[in-house]
Structures are given as C-alpha cells and as structure tokens.
Simulated scan of single mutants.
Amino acid sequence: MSDLGSFVAGLPKAELHLHIEGSLEPEMMVALARRNRVAIPFASVEEVRAAYRFTDLQSFLDIYYAGADVLRTAEDFHDLAAAYFDRAAADGVTHAEIFFDPQTHTHRGIAFATVMDGLLAAVDGARAKHGMSVYLIMSYLRHLDEEDAFATLAMAEPWLDRLVGVGLDSSEVGNPPAKFARVFAASRERGLKLCCHAGEEGPPAYVHEALDLLHVDRIDHGNRSMEDAGLVARLARSAMTLTVCPLSNVALRNVDRLEDHPIDRMLAAGLRATIHSDDPAYFGGYIAENFRAVAEARGLGREQLVTLARNSFLGSFLPDDQVAAQLTRLDAYAERT
C-alpha cells in the first residue's frame, strides 16, 4: 500500500452517505439468490459484475432495485450490513450513518420489521466487534408519491427511537424536494433529522428547495450547487454539510473524470464538503478508495484529507461530546502520522 493509501486507510472518518442496499457485492447477490431460491438474470458472479455498468442514475437504479430482490429475510439484511461494517472498519470508519430504503422491500412483500430486525442486529454487532457507532437513516423513494412516504413513516413508528433521520433518494430529475414537504415536516415533528439528495443530477434549484421547503440538516451530493455562486455562499455561511461521492459521480456521468471533480473547489469555497461511497458495490470503491482516488486525481494533500475527515464528524448527527471525542482521535492520528 502506498503512503497515501495507508494514511487514508488509517484516517478516522465518518461515513454519512452509504446506501446499505448499494453495498450488495456480486458474490453476495449470487449467494443470497441461491439461499433464498430467487431467480436472477445472471449465471455467475462475473455476469453480475459485468452488468454493473451504467450510463446515468436511472440505468443504475434499474439494476439496484433488481438486485435488492434477493434480500428476503432478517438474516439477509444482517449479513449485508455486517459485511459493510467489516469493510468500513478496515477503511478507518469510526462512525457511520447509513441509509436504507424500506419501500424497496415493503413493495415486494417484505415486512418492515424484517428489515429492521436484520439491520439492528448488524448495528449492535458493529458496536461490539469494531467499536463503531452507527445511526440508521430511513430514505423515502422520490419516484413514488408522498402518500406512500407517509405510509412508510407510519410503519416506522415502533422503531423511531432507533432511527436518527430520514432522507430522500432515487430518481432525482422530475421529482423535486417540494413533492415531499409535508412528510418531511411530519418527520421533523417526530424528532428525526432531515437529509435530501439534491444537486446530483437535479439543478441547483433542487438544493434551494431542500433548504427552503424541506428545511434539511444535510445535503446529499450537492455538486451542482457550484453552478450558483449565491447558493455556494449561502451553503458556506450556514456550514451546511454536503455528502459528496466522487466515484459515484463519475460512474453515473455527473462528472466526466475524477480529474474534473470539484471537491477541492468546494473546500476552497468554504463549503463543508465530505467524501463517501454512496453505493460502493456498484461504483467501484468503498470510502477509503474514494478518498485515495480523488486525492490522486486532484492532487489533494494531507491537510485537505484531514479537513474532509474533520468535516465528516462535524456534519454527523452525533452529540457534541461524541463529535469532540472523534475530533480528538483524528487530531492525534494526524499529528503522529
């Protein structure tokens, strides 16, 4: 491993933008299909991996939802999440806030309780095995209507004390944040933090809507904010966290090449930008690989990498005392490495 690689792997960091269904590696997809006797349109792991080629967000989502069909039991959700936590721990993740998409599962007859039982068992295991703190964020699917999101919020009621927030993901273009203003307000009333994918494929106007109509605590992606100087200034002034996913941006053609990625321009503009892996099984790398790849492509130095890690803790939903403890660990690592 290079000096950069070893520094990044050991760098304490929080992962704030990870879809647990997007950590379904081809090997696990095939194994779970066999275990659950689910037919998939692939004869081998190699065929699954070859299919992980995308031209845009929708072409990715098509295979993402098809792959999720192998997830049937609490054991499946546990195994999926536990495998992610092992990878994340090896990448220096000390705190994770992971998205899950209950509608992807309830719409095909999987009980909400099944999803939660499996994920919560894995969360408890990550704490015991890795000393990792983990929060769960329930995402609403924006290609469905708001009433469906309200129904999902109702299903979640027994587990609200185990959820830290809600998010909004899936097909962005044509599904603006405004479509979900009422359910986000209801989620806030229940004490949940609010996140929203905005400015990935959608325009800067969607970021404005997420701020002004949903009143979010965090913006997921947000790359296209850079097209609006006034929005950049607003985001910088408010210290709004942007959870940026470099390898995802390139895989989905939102950025042509990593060499063109705006992450360093975001930092230079005073934005609280962070780096995460989004759907790592599909996009070619977990969080440390995202750090390494964009650092090499954009010539980021150690100080910038430490800033990105620092921003991840500052942008987390951890209590202040736990953020302080994480930053102390980060500073100690940066000083001795």
Rank of each mutant, 00 (worst) to 15 (best):
H215G: 15
L271D: 05
R237S: 15
H261M: 13
D220E: 15
I219Y: 11
L271V: 03
G202L: 00
R272Y: 09
Y206F: 15
L247Y: 00
N254V: 15
S225Q: 05
E259T: 15
G270Q: 00
L211F: 08
L231K: 02
L214P: 10
E259G: 08
N249P: 07
T243H: 01
H208P: 07
D217V: 11
H221V: 14
V255P: 09
L258P: 01
G270Y: 08
P203I: 08
L247C: 10
H261L: 10
V244C: 07
R234E: 14
M240R: 02
R253W: 04
L252Y: 05
A273C: 11
L247D: 03
Y206M: 12
T274S: 07
M240Y: 08
V232R: 11
P262I: 01
S225H: 10
I263M: 09
I219E: 00
A236L: 01
L271P: 05
H261C: 14
D256G: 14
C245P: 03
P204L: 04
P203C: 11
G202R: 03
A273M: 10
A229I: 12
N254W: 01
Y206R: 00
A229E: 15
G202Y: 01
E201K: 04
L231E: 03
P204N: 06
S248P: 11
G230F: 10
P262W: 03
L247M: 13
E227L: 15
D228G: 01
L214K: 09
S225F: 14
V232G: 12
V232S: 09
P246H: 05
S248F: 07
R272H: 12
I263N: 08
T274L: 01
I219D: 00
V255N: 05
G202M: 03
L231P: 00
L214D: 03
T274K: 04
S248T: 15
E227P: 06
P262R: 05
R272K: 15
H261R: 12
C245I: 02
E259R: 13
L247W: 02
D264P: 08
A268K: 12
Y206P: 00
E209F: 03
H221W: 09
E209C: 09
L235N: 02
L252G: 04
E209S: 12
V255W: 00
L252N: 08
R234G: 05
S238R: 14
D217L: 14
S277G: 02
S248C: 13
M226H: 01
H208W: 15
L235I: 03
D256Q: 11
N223R: 13
R253Y: 06
V250P: 02
I275W: 06
A251L: 08
D220F: 04
S277V: 04
S238F: 07
E227T: 09
D212W: 11
G222W: 06
P262D: 09
E209H: 10
L214W: 04
H208G: 00
L247N: 01
